[in-house]
Computed example of a mutant assay.
Amino acid sequence: MRVGYGGGIPPNVGDGDRAAGADGVRDNLDPSWLRGDPPWLDLFGVWLREAVEARIPEPNAMVLGTVDPNGVPNTRTVLCKGADASGVVFFTGYDSDKGIDLAANPVASVTFPWIALERQVHFRGAVVPVGPEDTETYWRMRPRGSQLSALASDQSRPIGSRHELEAKAADIAARYGGLDGDDPIPVPADWGGYRLEPARVEFWQGRANRLHNRVRLSLIDGIWQAARLQP
Rank of each mutant, 00 (worst) to 15 (best):
V127W: 02
R35S: 15
D221P: 06
W139S: 09
T111Y: 00
E50G: 11
T75W: 05
T137D: 04
S218L: 14
Q230G: 13
P31W: 12
N209A: 13
E133Q: 14
H212A: 11
L211D: 05
G7N: 11
R210S: 14
V110M: 11
G7T: 01
S156Q: 05
W139V: 10
V3L: 13
V215S: 11
W139G: 10
A199I: 12
D134N: 01
D182Y: 04
V3A: 11
A173D: 01
D190K: 03
I220D: 03
R35W: 13
M62K: 07
R49A: 15
L41F: 07
K168Q: 11
P38I: 08
D37I: 06
D134F: 05
Y5P: 00
H163I: 10
S218R: 15
G181M: 07
V3T: 15
R200M: 06
A173G: 11
L117K: 14
D68M: 04
R207L: 04
Y176G: 12
D171K: 15
L217C: 08
Q230V: 08
D221H: 14
A173S: 14
P38F: 09
D190N: 12
K168F: 00
P38A: 08
D95I: 02
A61S: 14
V130M: 09
G131M: 03
E202W: 04
P184W: 05
D97C: 02
S149D: 10
P59F: 10
N209D: 12
D42L: 12
S149Y: 00
W139A: 12
V89P: 04
V72K: 07
E136I: 02
M141D: 12
D101I: 04
A103H: 10
T66G: 00
L41K: 09
D95F: 11
L217F: 09
R200V: 11
I115M: 08
Q225L: 14
V107C: 04
L48Q: 14
G193H: 13
L34F: 08
Y194N: 01
P10E: 07
V127F: 06
E197W: 01
V110F: 02
F90T: 09
P57F: 11
W204S: 07
V63C: 14
A83K: 08
G181N: 08
A85F: 08
S96K: 01
T111A: 14
P113G: 12
G145Y: 06
A173Y: 02
G206Y: 03
G192T: 06
G145H: 10
A208N: 10
G14W: 09
Y138I: 03
P11V: 15
W114Q: 15
G45P: 05
D84H: 10
A169R: 10
D183N: 04
A51Y: 05
G87W: 04
E136S: 14
V52W: 06
R124I: 09
V67F: 12
V110E: 01
D221V: 03
